[in-house]
Design a protein around this nucleic acid. Structure first.
Lengths: 134, 134
DNA sequence: CCGCATCCCTATAGATACTG
DNA sequence: CAGTATCTATAGGGATGCGG
């Protein structure tokens, strides 16, 4: 993965970290499920390849967006979670959803969730952040 | 460039359009300058290659994020501008900046602009949108 | 000059098979 | 289950060409 910083621009620097077709989908999964195993990510609709998943998880961990933990039950499993830095991507993720809502057709369950978000964006962010931190 | 939609997820669909290392930098340039020529984009700090720039401009135009116009003075020049759909990426761009502000060191001019945005985000979006539409 | 298109070459993304 | 290894396709950098 890319490591070099292309410029001092905050947009550019951010894209250097998660500006590819997969990283934010991993973040999305972790926001939906709070914690995921490696195979949970593989099950997502977009069907990420295993090597890409491994490299993105490494990259996101190296950039302190996610952390790895041992699974409490199974020694074989690993749990991935968002860090505070990762959770702080929530407002960004919401804006992506709002933009997509305007220009694409969303699945009904997402549409409903988003309608709830729209009612009080700040409140939703607070609630969700607290839930993800627990 | 990628055209196929990987899933119905709004995040995924959005990333299919602008989820690469360059597209949002083009959008950024157009938000800063309102209109840019081909060579303006080439002058940006990140030094995009000409073939990449051409393919991204095509892609963004095909997805109705930007439009091409004849330059009023020079017949040889072309002006690129954001469409409403492109301008609607502004809240998203702001959130990227806010996230970057929390975890990176911003250049002082950007920092100042962002402090102004923070004072009243909604007002800034309205003002900027109006300016970009003019 | 300006806006690309083309070519060449390298680096990275990605699909699939496989392993501890 | 959580990743590697291997192989191929595509993205991307850099130079150059070329019509308007």
């Amino acid at each position: 993965m890319d490591l070099k910083k292309r410029s001092e621009c905050p947009i550019s620097s951010s894209l250097d970290v998660w500006g590819d077709k997969w990283s934010l989908l991993i973040v999305r999964d972790l926001m939906m499920c709070k914690q995921c195993t490696y195979s949970d990510f593989l099950k997502s609709d977009e069907k990420i390849a295993t090597n890409i998943l491994a490299s993105r998880l490494q990259m996101l961990e190296a950039n302190a967006i996610i952390t790895k933990e041992d699974h409490p039950q199974s020694k074989a499993k690993v749990l991935y979670k968002l860090t505070q830095k990762g959770i702080d991507l929530l407002p960004l993720m919401i804006e992506i959803n709002l933009w997509a809502d305007k220009y694409f057709t969303l699945p009904t369950d997402r549409k409903q969730l988003l309608d709830h978000v729209k009612e009080d964006k700040e409140a939703f962010i607070k609630e969700k952040t607290a839930e993800l931190l627990k």
